[in-house]
Structure formats: C-alpha cells, structure tokens
Design a protein around this nucleic acid. Structure first.
Lengths: 155, 155
DNA sequence: CTTGTAAGTTTTAAAAGTGAACTTAAAAGT
DNA sequence: ACTTTTAAGTTCACTTTTAAAACTTACAAG
C-alpha cells in the first residue's frame, strides 16, 4: 500500500494518518501548540531539515490545519497559524503526552499542563460521551455504523 | 535530528514518537484493538509488506506494548497480545478517529463505538482531571514542571 | 513425498529523508 | 553605493527506509 492510498480508505484513522501520520508533522504541530508560528523558529527548535519543514508546512496548510499569513506586507515573512481543524487535533497530542509521561519519562515529566478555564494543573483523560464515566480502553468496541449487530470490529 | 535521538529527548511526545511515530505502527495497533493477534491476519488486513510487519511487531514487543506468545507448543505459531501499556495507547487512536470522523470522513463514518460499561454509542472526549469539564484545546497551557511561572510553553 | 500453512528473511528498485550550499527579497549597517 | 543580515525557501548529492516479490524454515496433513 502506498501512502497516497491511505487517503481513500474508509477508515478515519487511515485518512487521518495520511494527513498527520509522520513524526515531523506531529512535532511541527507540537510547536504550533507551544505558540511557534514562523519558519525559522520551527527550524531552530526542531532541528528539522528545511526541505522537510517546508513540505510539512505546505501540507498542513493544504489540509487546512494551518493558515499562512504575511505579517508585514512589505516583507516576505509569514505566520503559520492554527485553524480550528488544527486545534482540534490537539487531543491526539495530549493523549500521546499522557501516555509518554506515564510509560516513558525518566522521573518526573518536564512539562505540566494547566487548564486555563479552571486554573488547575490537569491531566486530560477520555470520558464516555453517553455516561460521562472515564473510558477504560478495553471497554470500547467498535462496529459498522449501519449494522445493529457488532462483531469484534474496530476503532 | 536522527530518529534514534528522539528516544533521548526530554519531551514525552518525542519519546512516544520514537515508539509509535510511524504510520504502519499505528495501523498495526488499530488492528490489535480490533482483536487481531496473528502475523498473517495483520498481513492480509493491512496489505503491509512482511518485512515491515515483522520489524514493527518486534519493536512493539521490545517496547512492551505487545507480548508474543506461542499458542500451540508443537508448532511455531504466535499470538501478539496487547499489554496494559499497549491498551493505554488507545486514547491516541480514539482521538485520531474522532478528528478524522469530524474533518475527513465523506458522509457518515463507517464505524461507531460502543462503551461496553454503559452500553451506549459513544464519542469519547477529553475532560479536565481537575474540574471535570470538557477540554477546549485552546485552553490548555503547558509549563515547565518545576517552575511556578509558566510562559507560553508547550504540550 | 508432495502440498499447505505460519512466520518470517533476503533481495532489488523506488521513494523519502538528510545536510550543505544556493536563491530571493527587502532592510540595515558602513 | 556596496556589503551583510534575516526570513523563507529551493536545489543538489548522498544515505536510509520502504515496497513488492521471491526465497526459507519448520511442521502437519493427505
């Protein structure tokens, strides 16, 4: 399977991977969430080859996660700004962070999160939209949308 | 930056990407969550090159997300089974699924999720561990763990 | 003793990534 | 007026990774 083909799969995970399924793209988004908006800042913080950075930013703009805005109209300088679509991918990174903090960090994780709305340090976690209870990953079953009787199929 | 180096970064996102930061690994995990446990099943469902599958399974075992168990002791046949560490990565895939369903699906998503604990169809979402409210991705700020005064730094 | 199946490994070609040097365009220094 | 600097890329030569197909090993059944 070629990577182009991912984009035409039915599964939303496969389609999402077509857009953000490589490491550099995720790291670029991480920097976006940290407030980075400019080419040279991405470059110096990530030590990413310029060609790769250029490609990834272009793709993120094409896919609508970022918009490119000239911020001084007499100079060729640009801001890459998150759209709603870009912001809404953040739960993926937050989940990845929580997992990494739990299983991969040596000692205490270097960064903590605060929920600005309530002012407290937070570790966001998934809850069920129906019952509001925390989700145990073993207790989620996926099934074809239009068939009442689910097998052991997938999300 | 080489990919090996990701593993020695402080950031848990970078470290997590070292383990699961490529598309095939995510797709292999997707199949695990769907109940797939055997080499040939992964192969036929994903149309993944055998060498890549072999490598990815090996890495997932090394990193402790899967365990390899011989299930007939007189034949060389194996089950790849999720560990807790593997199961707990599922929120990442569930978040990716939710995002893909919202922004990339054509019409209705092909798969739905049910929360076995409550019996209802569900779209898991992040809530704040402190206040219990749904998390707006723009309202999470990250800051260095041991410094009281956070800048615009990052999760 | 040939065929089938599970779980790989090897091989070769194509694609993607890397690092350094080059480009463009305007602005600021001397 | 010229040189340097900064931002944002692009181009080029080289290395690594991936893809698709063929080959291997181990055992079992017919």
């Amino acid at each position: 399977m070629k990577w182009q083909e991912l984009n035409s799969e039915r599964c939303s995970i496969a389609r999402a991977l077509y857009v953000v399924g490589d490491r550099w793209t995720i790291l670029v988004l991480r920097e976006c969430y940290r407030g980075v908006t400019r080419f040279d800042k991405f470059e110096s913080r990530l030590k990413i080859p310029r060609r790769i950075l250029s490609e990834r930013l272009k793709k993120l703009v094409e896919e609508g996660l970022l918009v490119k805005e000239q911020y001084q109209n007499h100079r060729l300088r640009f801001d890459y700004l998150l759209t709603d679509k870009g912001w809404e991918l953040r739960p993926v990174l937050l989940s990845l962070l929580a997992w990494g903090d739990k299983y991969l960090a040596e000692g205490e994780p270097p960064m903590s999160l605060r929920h600005e709305a309530c002012g407290h340090v937070t570790v966001p976690a998934l809850v069920c939209s129906a019952c509001g209870e925390p989700v145990d990953p073993r207790e989620i079953k996926s099934f074809p949308t239009h068939k009442a009787a689910p097998k052991t199929e997938a999300g």
